[in-house]
Design a protein around this nucleic acid. Structure first.
Length: 191
DNA sequence: CAAGAGATCATCT
DNA sequence: GATGATCTCTTGA
């Protein structure tokens, strides 16, 4: 399992290192396991695309806190977004999980189900993640949501850097290549 | 296909 | 009172 130290590093590094990691969601006896294939970094108080760019508020407070905490927010009146807080306490930053590749989904009858994970709002819906996860740690199995290391180390060539999605309002920060995804992966949210 | 609109509400001004 | 780290559906070529 990924521990808190993993997240207590520069945001751009964590966003890349999360690629290939597995996310595990346990609800009762049902376990869903999927591979992270796309992330975006929201990095620091000056990043105009970040919720933290206009200072600390009730919503974004968790981004200012210790690494490894879950930041879930509600947007467009119907979607939840899943982020993991990174970096030092006091430095507001987080990584948005944008897409997952299905690995296995096992219910109590051991049946494999088709699941939709290609998009930040779709994956939270599929994993039944909502605001109750906000401010909980991801470095414990206690809440039924945690991360595990990749089975194999990724080659740097497998990682694509790109502009972030949906942040055209972010001035000088809208073109930062802080979105990362696995090359040729069919499950990323956009090409 | 691509483009546009609507959904729908917490959050911030 | 406006808007958004999105998604789905509809329209039209």
């Amino acid at each position: 399992m990924l521990n808190q130290n993993f997240f207590n590093q520069p945001t751009l590094k964590v966003a890349q290192d999360l690629l290939g990691c597995f996310i595990i969601r346990k609800v009762g006896r049902k376990i869903i396991r999927a591979k992270i294939v796309e992330t975006e970094a929201y990095n620091g108080p000056r990043d105009l695309a970040s919720h933290a760019s206009r200072g600390r508020t009730a919503r974004n407070a968790v981004m200012f806190g210790p690494a490894g905490m879950i930041y879930v927010y509600f947007t467009y009146g119907l979607h939840f977004m899943l982020n993991i807080v990174t970096g030092k306490t006091g430095y507001p930053a987080a990584v948005l999980i944008r897409a997952l590749e299905p690995v296995e989904a096992i219910n109590h009858k051991s049946k494999i189900i088709n699941l939709k994970f290609n998009g930040p709002a779709r994956l939270t819906k599929t994993l039944a993640i909502n605001k109750t996860f906000n401010h909980l740690p991801i470095f414990t199995r206690k809440h039924g949501l945690w991360l595990e290391k990749p089975t194999r180390q990724l080659q740097p060539k497998q990682i694509i850097r790109a502009k972030r999605i949906g942040v055209d309002y972010a001035g000088a920060y809208k073109d930062k290549k802080w979105r990362y995804y696995l090359k040729d992966n069919n499950f990323v949210s956009k090409k």
